[in-house]
Computed example of a mutant assay.
Amino acid sequence: MTQDLTPTLDALLSRYSVGPKHLVEPGPDDESLRLMTEAALRGPDHGELLPWRFKVVRGVARERMAALFADAARRAGKDEAGAAMDAERALKPPVTVAVVARIDLGHPQVPAHEQWVCVGGALANFLDAAHLLGYGGKMLSGAKVRDPQIAAAFCEPGETLLGWIALGTPVKKPAGPSRKPGPDVALTFWS
């Protein structure tokens, strides 16, 4: 069935990742973060296991995260300029949300791959809600997620740090993806 796109679908189709260098204050407030998390909770979740957690970093906590990033850079062999650059990356977005997975590898009914799908669905819904509320955002990861001290700062035993969502008000309209194929490449019909 074909029909005109609704305003909400038009808005979803306009969402693209916005990197930290294009994000400024204000970042999402408590109510916006709650709404974004409510949207994340509407993602698929076989067995209602909630195999993910979001941990908000803002205000003075950004300084602590910046110090963690700088220390990790030094452990990785970067000089002080590189450590300062990594610290600045932690300070740039107004709000950062750590994405943590809690996958039950021995669950009798919900295999790990289904739990990972739940994490991805929650992440997508969270970013879509941020966009609909007028914020820009981007999921970031890299070598820092594998640093034991950084992971320990964000994770409980049995959890995995996946990365961080940088959030804020976009200072420019995103141009859209330049490398993503269209739906004709991503959608095929099996027979």
Rank of each mutant, 00 (worst) to 15 (best):
Q3Y: 05
D4V: 11
L5E: 12
T6R: 01
T8N: 10
T8M: 13
R15W: 10
R15T: 13
V18L: 09
V18H: 12
P20E: 14
L23V: 11
V24S: 13
P26K: 00
P26I: 09
G27M: 11
P28W: 06
D29Y: 04
D30R: 08
S32R: 02
S32T: 14
M36E: 12
T37W: 11
T37M: 08
E38N: 08
A39F: 11
A40M: 09
L41S: 14
L41E: 15
G43E: 06
G47D: 10
L50Y: 09
L50E: 13
W52H: 07
F54E: 09
V57W: 06
R58C: 14
R58W: 13
A61F: 12
R62P: 15
E63K: 02
A70Y: 05
A70W: 05
A73R: 00
R74I: 09
A76K: 00
G77S: 05
E80T: 03
A83F: 04
A84W: 04
M85Y: 13
D86P: 01
D86T: 00
A87Q: 01
L91A: 14
K92D: 14
P94Q: 03
P94C: 08
A98T: 10
A101F: 09
A101D: 06
D104T: 06
L105H: 15
H107K: 09
V110Q: 05
V110E: 11
P111V: 09
P111I: 05
H113T: 06
H113N: 11
E114S: 07
E114M: 05
Q115K: 01
Q115C: 11
W116S: 08
V119R: 00
V119S: 10
G121W: 01
A122E: 07
N125V: 05
A130K: 02
H131D: 06
L132E: 12
G136I: 07
G137D: 09
G137N: 06
K138H: 13
K138R: 13
K138F: 13
S141V: 00
S141A: 13
S141I: 00
S141F: 05
S141K: 02
G142K: 02
G142L: 07
A143Y: 10
K144R: 05
V145I: 15
V145Q: 04
R146L: 13
D147M: 03
P148L: 07
Q149E: 15
A151G: 03
A151V: 00
A152N: 00
P157D: 10
P157G: 10
P157A: 04
G158N: 06
G158W: 04
L161K: 02
L162A: 05
L162K: 00
G163N: 07
W164C: 05
I165K: 05
L167H: 07
P177M: 03
P177A: 13
S178H: 04
K180V: 09
P181V: 02
G182C: 08
T188Q: 12
W190P: 10
S191Y: 07
